[in-house]
Design a protein around this nucleic acid. Structure first.
Length: 294
DNA sequence: TGCCTATTTCCTGTTT
DNA sequence: GAAACAGGAAATAGGC
């Protein structure tokens, strides 16, 4: 493998995937409707019949471009020539290799590939469910293999938003179809992906992902009744600030966040839990939180 | 350009 | 009295 030492990275090392980088794409490739979904979901879109080990150079590029797109990273930030590799070579790369070839984007690529390699998401799309992803990662992936593990900052948004990506398959169904009988919404599946999730992760998905990643963001929200989907905010303002940080909104408060949460009642993404403060419950239209959701 | 969705912001009143 | 809840109304922003 040829490792280029002179990577022309234009993104500083401190930039994370959540940064507001321009989402410009290289003109030769139009990403399918995956721009608003996450690596976990998109992992089944590219080369879904193949383990990354067996990808061609073209498939490696496909993966690379889609991963960058999903993280809203300018494709020109990475010298694609560094990834003129076949899947077998790609899979043999270490975390350091990715960092060397892609700079600050390397960890993101490393994690994305790790998801595909270790969670088996290259398999049949029908086999993919949010529950699968959650339980597989929780059960099968020791935190030690996660590239950001060495930065256990309590409210580290880089961890929350970068490492959690395998937990976001439901971004594709962010606006639950059962509650949307409006025929105007009856677009194709791919259209719905963008139409209903125009700004990335929804609030309820953000909350869900915190719940599914307690080891990385402990003490923010906890399950009250895991099987029933009941959870409680432990540090409501901290969650609100984290949400605000994700949305680049420094004035976010729990009051505002909770208003958005209440709108989910009508859509049955959340259910009311009467008489208990800071307690919410996932509704029938929330996806991906159940342990046994397959 | 207008519409749609998903918030965000502000507000008043109520409950704990 | 403070914090949280409830929900109306309008504004905002990104995608189509």
């Amino acid at each position: 493998m040829v490792l280029h030492s002179g990577c022309s990275m234009s993104i500083p090392a401190t930039v994370s995937a959540e940064s507001q980088l321009p989402a410009s794409w290289s003109p030769h490739y139009n990403c399918p409707d995956v721009s608003m979904v996450t690596p976990g979901y998109a992992g089944r879109l590219w080369s879904q019949d193949l383990h990354p080990q067996y990808w061609s150079k073209y498939q490696v590029w496909e993966w690379l471009q889609q991963t960058l797109d999903m993280h809203q990273i300018d494709a020109t930030s990475i010298p694609f020539s560094n990834f003129d590799l076949e899947g077998r070579q790609l899979c043999s790369m270490t975390y350091q290799d990715f960092t060397r070839l892609a700079g600050s984007i390397g960890p993101i690529l490393y994690q994305s590939l790790a998801d595909l390699k270790w969670t088996g998401q290259y398999g049949s799309a029908d086999m993919f469910t949010p529950g699968d992803i959650k339980t597989e990662l929780d059960a099968d992936l020791p935190c030690s293999i996660l590239p950001f593990k060495e930065e256990p900052s309590f409210y580290s948004t880089s961890e929350l938003f970068e490492i959690k990506t395998p937990f976001q398959p439901s971004a594709m169904m962010a606006s639950p179809a059962p509650s949307s009988p409006d025929p105007k919404r009856s677009h194709s599946r791919s259209h719905q992906v963008k139409k209903h999730n125009p700004r990335g992760t929804h609030l309820w998905e953000f909350i869900r992902d915190i719940l599914l990643n307690p080891e990385r963001n402990p003490g923010l929200i906890k399950w009250e009744d895991r099987s029933e989907g009941v959870f409680r905010f432990l540090k409501s303002e901290a969650v609100a600030q984290l949400w605000g940080k994700k949305k680049n909104n420094s004035s976010m408060t729990y009051e505002k966040l909770s208003r958005a949460m209440r709108y989910y009642y009508k859509r049955e993404i959340l259910e009311r839990v009467d008489g208990r403060r800071l307690v919410y419950k996932f509704g029938r239209n929330a996806r991906g939180w159940r342990e046994t959701e397959k």
